[in-house]
Design a protein around this nucleic acid. Structure first.
Length: 185
DNA sequence: GTACAGATTGAG
DNA sequence: TCAATCTGTACT
């Protein structure tokens, strides 16, 4: 019954972003001595996704990790002060990734209910850029408990500039039961 | 070398 | 609901 915390492997991350983003929910993210259950993610699904930094197949110093094969950390700074933790997905050369927006670290949900706060709590920064979560000893994912839960999908946050089509696509995923916690903040 | 955007947060 | 905040990126 006790699943021995199987580490999430490469196969998982080579799925498409929308699949991986949804399936990572309920699993554990482990960074150093901290761990949390992933409860909210967003998928960025390739060069045609206007909300993606890799829109149009553009490659920059910042987003190149997005093109790696699934399982690599793509972390970057927004607003000059907040880190966003993403994990590349899909096959090498194709820019897909999912953003981890929130996790439950069984401490205080308010500390990890946003992308910036989560990274701060877990101590993530640029030194993790390009880290392979399949092999890294600093950051990885583990299977969660076998507790059933409903997944809710919703439009992504803060991407109005991507136009109505992409702004409306339901590529944001959350664990239903946690929604009330998030809404409380 | 310089302008500018930004996948947020916290306060009111 | 709204405005502040600052670094990296992109472009000249």
């Amino acid at each position: 019954m006790k699943k021995n915390m199987a580490r999430v492997n490469r196969d998982f991350f080579t799925n498409s972003a929308s699949v991986a983003a949804k399936d990572i929910l309920g699993k554990y993210i482990v960074v150093g001595d901290k761990r949390g259950i992933v409860i909210e993610t967003e998928a960025y699904v390739g060069p045609q996704d206007k909300a993606s930094h890799a829109f149009g197949g553009k490659v920059t110093e910042r987003n190149k990790a997005e093109y790696l094969t699934g399982g690599y950390v793509y972390i970057y700074l927004v607003y000059g002060m907040y880190w966003q933790l993403n994990i590349s997905t899909g096959k090498e050369g194709y820019p897909e990734c999912f953003l981890i927006r929130a996790a439950d670290c069984s401490d205080d949900i308010k500390k990890t209910n946003g992308p910036g706060k989560l990274c701060k709590y877990l101590g993530l920064d640029k030194s993790f850029y390009g880290e392979d979560v399949v092999k890294s000893r600093r950051i990885w994912f583990e299977d969660g408990e076998d507790i059933p839960f409903d997944v809710v999908s919703a439009p992504r946050i803060g991407i109005d500039y991507a136009g109505p089509y992409w702004a409306k696509r339901k590529l944001r995923f959350l664990i239903k039961d946690y929604k009330k916690h998030l809404a409380k903040i």
